[in-house]
Design a protein around this nucleic acid. Structure first.
Lengths: 190, 190
DNA sequence: TTGACAACTTACTAACTAGTAAGTAAAATC
DNA sequence: GATTTTACTTACTAGTTAGTAAGTTGTCAA
């Protein structure tokens, strides 16, 4: 049966999209099932609880990110190009119906989501931060990036800003998002 | 009757607190009424709909912010101290049970909140940004702050980062938030 | 003293929520 | 060819949601 895997994957796609669009408390099994054209019990068959479903979404995203950063198409890039690649992830979210990042969406509602989801979000955020930190250090060592202080702190600043900028763009428009990206480049490459 | 105004104010306080804690879709009239020790219909008496209630919360916050920035205790501060004052707003949120800012909370759920609330959020975000931009320009003109590009863009970067950093701190702890503040100062005062 | 009004409570509704139990049809396995 | 398993559907539950209508009580003004 090919349809099984298609259905499971489509459920994850829809859940991911809804999370980035409406947030954890803003979407329901009914949204997914009507979009998919099945009954809500079918979603529960594949993912018994919302906690399990959202954890699966984040786990898939984490796997995807690990694959990306270990792929030579990203790994062998110059630091400057790595930065552009990372920014493009967020630009693509913005271009895709003004989505925000998973981490931002779930952390904004952190105190009203299940514990297992909180743990996944924590792990995901750490991984994003670790890669960004390594990239910034690599770039500064190579003389491409210019910033003071710890790469870890600069990474936290940039990541928090991208997260916030996607949210900001919802109220103030895409130009504000692009302005933030430009300012980061200006700060980093000065 | 003093109690009227007390009740109305307490409802706004609780709604504001719940918004910053659990988000728009994460709190209900039942939360407020049980905290206040009244029935949910009493909340509807003062604020007929959730849309009206949350708009009132934001309007009050906007008034408060306007009062602050026009008060000599803030207005007459040196740019460096104004920056510290602004950062302290966010540090205080973090210290208060890990709250996030209203703007961040509502923009993360932007596509699942009422239209009138969206408009209030937009107006509020513009006002925060405008003040921050003016302060940054003032500081650079006075030779205190150092940054390239437009003050508007640097303001967008800093504001988005503070918004994101409060969210980040929920998953990764308060130290990360402090690290971001430190990095902003390092970037700005270098 | 009466009447109006403010600030509620009681009691409800209709819609939606996550989640379940039991049944079904088709495909895969033995 | 019989049996098991997969991927569902039908039909439901218990809880929660925002919101309402009608009644109650205390305060105040005429």
């Amino acid at each position: 049966m090919v349809k099984i895997e298609n259905t499971k994957r489509t459920i994850l796609n829809l859940a991911e999209s809804l999370l980035q669009d409406k947030g954890f408390n803003g979407f329901s099994y009914a949204h997914i099932s009507s979009d998919l054209g099945v009954k809500n019990a079918a979603i529960h068959y594949h993912y018994p609880t919302k906690e399990i479903l959202v954890c699966a979404v984040i786990e898939r995203y984490r796997d995807r990110f690990k694959l990306w950063i270990n792929n030579s198409r990203v790994k062998d890039l110059a630091p400057e190009k790595k930065l552009d690649w990372f920014f493009s992830i967020y630009s693509d979210f913005r271009a895709d119906n003004g989505k925000v990042c998973l981490v931002g969406s779930l952390e904004a509602e952190f105190n009203s989501i299940p514990g297992a989801v909180q743990e996944e979000v924590q792990a995901m955020h750490k991984e994003l931060l670790a890669w960004l930190q390594g990239m910034l250090k690599e770039g500064r060592d190579a003389g491409v990036f210019n910033f003071s202080g710890e790469p870890a702190n600069k990474a936290a600043l940039i990541l928090s800003s991208l997260q916030g900028a996607l949210q900001m763009a919802r109220a103030l428009g895409s130009k504000k998002f692009r302005d933030v990206i430009e300012q980061h480049k200006l700060d980093l490459l000065a």
